[in-house]
Design a protein around this nucleic acid. Structure first.
Length: 183
DNA sequence: TGCACGATGAAC
DNA sequence: TTCATCGTGCAC
């Protein structure tokens, strides 16, 4: 199992969002190693992207997005859910990829289709905001066996307020995968 | 210091 | 379509 290197994340955000599909998200907590295959992502391109949190500038909440690539940006939403992103591109670019759904691979209970459910199932919370994804308890790897699949592009979910940015096809998912949150 | 609202999910 | 639930960001 090969842990993705920093250089994987330090690339164009759309490329990272597409290539994260099929990769394994690994989370070790309380002595349990949980693994899920990433099947749905969304790209947030930086401060000029009106749907991105970084469009509001550098704040206490978004400072992780403005940091170096390969770190987790975890935020609290709607008073009850966490969402998990990986920071991409060079420091200061403020771009990230939201993980929207995973397919259970190992030690995962409950539903995982949707960013909030995904975090609940694999035990991601505010403690992991800013966590290095090259660490030993939270990282992403190549899958055991390479798999062939088609990638579907659609508009991102829940960003209708972002004017023309809401229409862009920046959501990606594995065609036909039953764990995708919405088709 | 107050308040509107959100990169959600579930119920109705 | 409505609601639970609360931190963030911005108005005042």
């Amino acid at each position: 199992m090969q842990k993705l290197p920093r250089t994987f994340y330090d690339r164009d955000t759309i490329v990272v969002a597409r290539e994260l599909l099929g990769k394994f998200l690994v989370r070790k907590s309380r002595g349990i190693r949980r693994v899920g295959k990433i099947v749905e992502t969304e790209a947030y391109l930086g401060p000029h992207d009106l749907a991105a949190h970084s469009a509001r500038g550098l704040t206490e909440r978004t400072k992780i997005m403005f940091g170096p690539p390969g770190f987790a940006y975890v935020y609290f939403i709607y008073g009850m859910y966490f969402c998990m992103n990986v920071v991409t591109e060079r420091e200061g670019h403020a771009s990230a990829v939201l993980l929207r759904a995973i397919e259970p691979v190992k030690n995962i209970e409950g539903r995982t289709c949707g960013p909030g459910l995904l975090c609940r199932a694999i035990e991601i919370d505010r403690e992991l905001n800013g966590h290095d994804l090259l660490s030993d308890d939270f990282f992403i790897t190549e899958p055991d066996e390479a798999e062939s699949f088609s990638i579907i592009k659609r508009p991102r979910i829940g960003v209708d307020y972002a004017k023309h940015w809401a229409k862009r096809h920046l959501r990606f998912y594995i065609k036909g995968n039953p764990f995708v949150s919405r088709r």
